[in-house]
Design a binder for these strands. Structure first.
Length: 484
RNA sequence: UCCUUCUUAGCUCAGCUGGUUAGAGCACGUGACUGUUAAUCACGGGGUCCCUGGUUCGAGCCCAGGAGAAGGAGCCA
């Protein structure tokens, strides 16, 4: 009974804005964005980026209440929804009662009714979600996460929870954060002076996961199609706009898939989730689109982008991604005028070296002007588990490169042949005995399979048009950054 | 970790060749106005010029070291 009254007593602003003017009184609750002219409250409750205009009659409402309607204050307003008597909105709420739920000292509240820099808002990440920009970003982030689960669920994938704490650092995907419950001031040592992990919580050295892939492969060998979607940790000292120490990653792993099937799935997934956001976050994306256009006006003509955010997203969902091999990419780059005029900082000379980000950007942003899937990289620059091609030089790897983001997906067809895998592990000094459980999949019912990792924040970057990855995760973790 | 740039009011920034009491817009406070759209108008308060040391008669400005931030590079998702 109680919850019924609660539902009746408060309507979310997203819903109110869709209602027709009516006699019945409504109650809304939210936070004050601005209070103009001692009578117009722009009220936001987070359900939508749009504010509801609450009109307070300053002749009828107590002056002590009016004084407390400040930017950031939480209020409850009750009154009739009427056709707006001013321009700028279709309906407004004429408040008969206004209750202050939580005061906000205007002199101390950092958010002002004005434009703030993203750098400043990053410093107050606990409050920045109350702004239009971050409200839009995090509602989009939510729908992207939801649509990823929906995509895989509809296809019959099993959502597998791979461990956060692992004992293997075998993949070599990066520096790890150590996990221990040792007293750091008094770490037990063995007779030979080494750290005595036998006495640690797990009885061995452990760290936070850098990837759920190896465990994902075990699941694929049971369920056929699985995916993970969880946090990942890398202790790299990376200070860039596209790296985090804690980030979320989606890692599907499919039995009986070859590399082409893998690329098909990745492309379908990306197009699906972008379309989903375009449909379900229409207003938020339009807001960010306008924001970016305003920002572009500050730039000189030649630095402005050819497509706006919405055009870029639609272009991505409506066109097939370009698929090329690493070797073809090298040839394109080698023959490019850019290379001949020596405009690359790193000139393209030999086959076999990894592409620099300037090369990837050239391919995606200048040459093809669309997402590019590069496959069949030299084996010496890729991981041990990737399937070796018959040429003896390349592996069945794939990277998906996005404009402005770079590598958004990295994946491969996995080496399913035990002997080939063991040989490669020996060459790359990967301890096979520690990974006996991984190799067991090749011993018992091995089969062709493939998978990839999709960086969730990089996807959110692309869809929101933001440029710094620290602005698309609520509370970013990066070197020297662990506030909140 | 490397390279470049930056750090002045709550925020965004200006500050001349090193020269007296460091400025603007916005925000905030007070008052006026009352159908506003980041309301408007008037008045007002507000400074560890990032820190430490040095050069100088004199440093926000020059020099050295340090801290933090932004962008780029590497590592990668």
């Amino acid at each position: 009974m109680c919850s019924y009254i609660l539902i009746m007593s408060r309507v979310k602003i997203k819903e109110v804005l869709g209602l027709a003017p009516q006699e019945k009184e409504l109650t809304v609750k939210g936070w004050v964005r601005t209070f103009r002219n001692n009578q117009f409250i722009a009220l936001n409750d987070g359900s939508t980026n749009n504010n509801l205009q609450v009109v307070a009659d300053f002749n009828k409402i107590d002056e002590t209440i009016l004084k407390r309607i400040t930017t950031g204050a939480a209020i409850s307003a009750t009154g009739k929804l009427i056709e707006s008597q001013g321009k700028g909105q279709s309906v407004e709420l004429t408040a008969t009662t206004i209750e202050i739920l939580g005061d906000s000292d205007a002199e101390k509240y950092p958010l002002q009714p004005k434009k703030h820099s993203l750098e400043f808002l990053r410093e107050i990440a606990h409050l920045r979600m109350r702004t239009n920009t971050f409200g839009a970003v995090f509602r989009i982030r939510h729908n992207l996460a939801y649509s990823i689960h929906k995509f895989f669920n509809d296809k019959g994938f099993v959502y597998l929870h791979t461990p956060i704490i692992t004992a293997s650092d075998a993949e070599g995907a990066g520096e790890t954060f150590k996990v221990t419950n040792f007293d750091l001031k008094n770490i037990p040592k063995t007779d030979s002076g080494e750290i005595d992990f036998k006495n640690d919580f797990f009885g061995r050295a452990t760290n936070l996961t850098v990837s759920g892939q190896l465990e994902g492969e075990l699941g694929a060998m049971a369920f056929g199609d699985v995916y993970t979607f969880g946090p990942t940790f890398r202790a790299e000292n990376s200070n860039t706009t596209r790296h985090l120490a804690e980030f979320w990653m989606i890692e599907p792993e499919m039995a009986f898939y070859n590399l082409n099937d893998n690329a098909d799935l990745a492309e379908e997934l990306l197009q699906y989730v972008i379309s989903y956001a375009l449909e379900h976050n229409k207003e938020d994306i339009e807001f960010l689109n306008t924001r970016l256009l305003d920002e572009e006006k500050q730039k000189p003509q030649n630095e402005r982008s050819e497509m706006n955010l919405i055009e870029k997203l639609k272009f991505c969902t409506d066109n097939k991604f370009e698929r090329r091999t690493y070797t073809e990419a090298i040839n394109i780059l080698k023959d490019s005028n850019h290379n001949k005029k020596k405009k690359f900082q790193y000139l393209i000379n030999d086959w076999g070296t990894d592409l620099q980000s300037e090369h990837e950007r050239y391919l995606v942003e200048k040459h093809f002007k669309k997402p590019v899937i590069l496959t069949d990289y030299p084996k010496q620059i890729k991981s041990f588990y990737m399937r070796q091609n018959d040429d003896g030089k390349t592996v069945r790897a794939m990277d998906i490169l996005f404009p402005g983001i770079g590598e958004i997906v990295g994946g491969s067809q996995r080496e399913e042949r035990l002997e080939k895998l063991e040989t490669r592990m020996k060459e790359m000094n990967i301890p096979a005995d520690e990974l006996y459980w991984y190799l067991d999949t090749r011993r018992f019912g091995t089969c062709e399979h493939a998978g990839f990792g999709l960086g969730f924040e990089r996807l959110v970057l692309f869809v929101t048009g933001m440029t710094n990855i620290r602005d698309v995760i609520p509370f970013p973790r990066a070197p020297k950054t662990c506030e909140f």
